[in-house]
Structures are given as structure tokens and as C-alpha cells.
Amino acid sequence: MSRAVLEVRDLRVSYAHPLGVVRAVDGVSFSLAPNERFGLAGESGSGKSTMALAILRMIHPPGHIDGGRVFLDGVELSALDREAMRRLRLAGIALVPQGSMNSLNPVMRIGQQIADALADHGEALSRPVLDARIADLLPTVGLRPDVASMYPHELSGGMKQRACIAIAICLRPRVIIADEPTSALDVVVQRQVMATLARVQRDLGAAVILVGHDMGLMAQFVDRLGIMYAGRLVEVAPIGAIVTAPRHPYTRALVASLPSLEHRGRLQGIPGLAPLLRDLPRGCAFHPRCPIAGERCRQETPALRSLGTDGTVACHAAEATP
């Protein structure tokens, strides 16, 4: 395996809450190979979106990054000063925001928003060069060049999301973090946007982290999948292995909620409620909902460990079941 583009080691993020400290991300480690598409799946509140912001070092009070290191091409991000980190956003790691959000400035033309991004990363281009660059950029995400002169409210949801992708790739980043990029889009548009994302990823040779809760989408898009539960990674494995032979009981429940790849299921049918992060049970966080939990699961938090295959899993009982 070639050297990792992005490496996350023991990342921990917490939020100060009047009723106590909430550990949103609790010791997450993973790495990303060049060109790899890595998925992070889990229920809402499992800490997957916080992960995305923490990698970009965009956690603001009351949130706090308690520890952990992130490397991009061997450069440690946590050691960078604020200005260097700012320059690295978009140029090194770019975010594609959630599709359900109004992530574009409503009073600024699309072209201007792209120009802002270029200008603040030291690309002070003359007007004609800039216009040409934007006109070249927009078709790569499937937008007409004249979208540059339009305002966000003149675009459809899918077009807005393409515009966001255009901004995200304008500096050819090494890593793209797509945080539920297709939420709130209808299925047809969803497929088109994902296809666009896949194409630009191939063209750029970038690695992608796809954050989401749609297992069907994950199965179609990613190479490797990490499952998050209560702020921890509970299983990481190639997508094929996860779908055919999930190791963690939670993963199994997720996969079982997928009737077939054609009919995407959401995370339903798992008994019990998602845990409150500020009030986690002792031991394995999943044990109250787990069908095979034993005494050890109530006492001891399982660590991620390799089972001799490609994947890793954090479950005491993982060997016991096929």
C-alpha cells in the first residue's frame, strides 16, 4: 500500500454543555490512500460531521479539539499556525457541504464566489484570465459557463451543489471531504451529483471522504467504509467485505436494514435509541442495543483490532460470529 495522503490519529473532540462535557469524537484513527474513496457512516449524532470539521480544524467554542494529530502528505496539520491552516483549506483539503444547506452567499454571483476563493489563496488573476478560468471550471462540474453571472437563488438545488463542488475543486485539492453532499436532493439529481463528484475525483486524482448515513449510497460510491457509533469508529473494512460479511453487530444491523442495493434503506429497524453522547453507558457504547452483548461488553470498551482480514473491528464478540 502506498503512503497515505491523509492520516488521522486518535482525534478527539468535545463540546462543553451545561449538563457536562460531550465527547463528539473519541479517539478516531484512520488513513486514506491516494485516489481512495473512504466512507464514514453512522446515525446522526455519531460524530461523523464533527469529524469533517475537526480535520479542517474548524471546531469553535463551545467545541474543542482535545487531542489527536492529522497529517496531510506527511505534514502535521495540528502544528500549523492559523494562517497556514487557512491556506491549506480548499488548497489541500476541500469541503463539499451538505446538500440541504444554503452554503452559497445569497447576495453574491457564483463567479464572484469562486473568484473570492481564488483570490484569498494568492491567485490574484486579471479579470480576463479569471473569467476564462471560471468558464473552464464550471463545465467540469456540469454547469454552463454563464452560471458564473447568476445568483444562488436563480439555481436549482442540484446546480447549487455543483457550484459548491466547483468551488471545492478550484485549487485541485488532495482530499475532498463531502459531508452528505446529496441530502435533500431528489434521487435522480442525487445520482447526477454523485457521478459528477466521482468524475472530478478521478480527474484530480484526489482522495474522497464521503460522510453520510445512506448505506446504499455508500455501497455504490466508496472503496472502504468506516462505521461510526457514539463518536468512535467501530468497524473499518473494504466495502465488499462490509456488505457481505459485516463483523460488528451494529454494522450488521445497518446492512440488514438495506433490503437490496436497488432499494436504499435508511438506518431503521435497529432496536433502541441512538445513545446520548453526554450520557454514554459504561463499556461498549452499543451494548444496550446489542443482541449479543455479554458481561465484558458492559465493563470494558473494546478497541479497534485487526481480525486477520483487511478490516478492523471494535467488538469483544467479533470472532464468535461468522
Binding site: R89, L95, M101, N102
Partner: peptide
């Protein structure tokens, strides 16, 4: 708290750009 301000920060825009233009 708007999404476009969060995205602007993720784009690595300068603090003054985010403040004034967003």
C-alpha cells in the same frame, strides 16, 4: 450561524473576507 459562513470558512477565505463580504 448561516451555512454560507461555515462554508466560507471551509473555503479558507481570509477572516476579513468572511467578516465583510459574507
Amino acid at each position: 450561524g448561516e451555512d454560507y459562513v461555515v462554508f466560507a470558512e471551509a473555503e479558507g477565505l481570509r477572516a476579513t473576507t468572511v467578516f465583510l463580504r459574507y
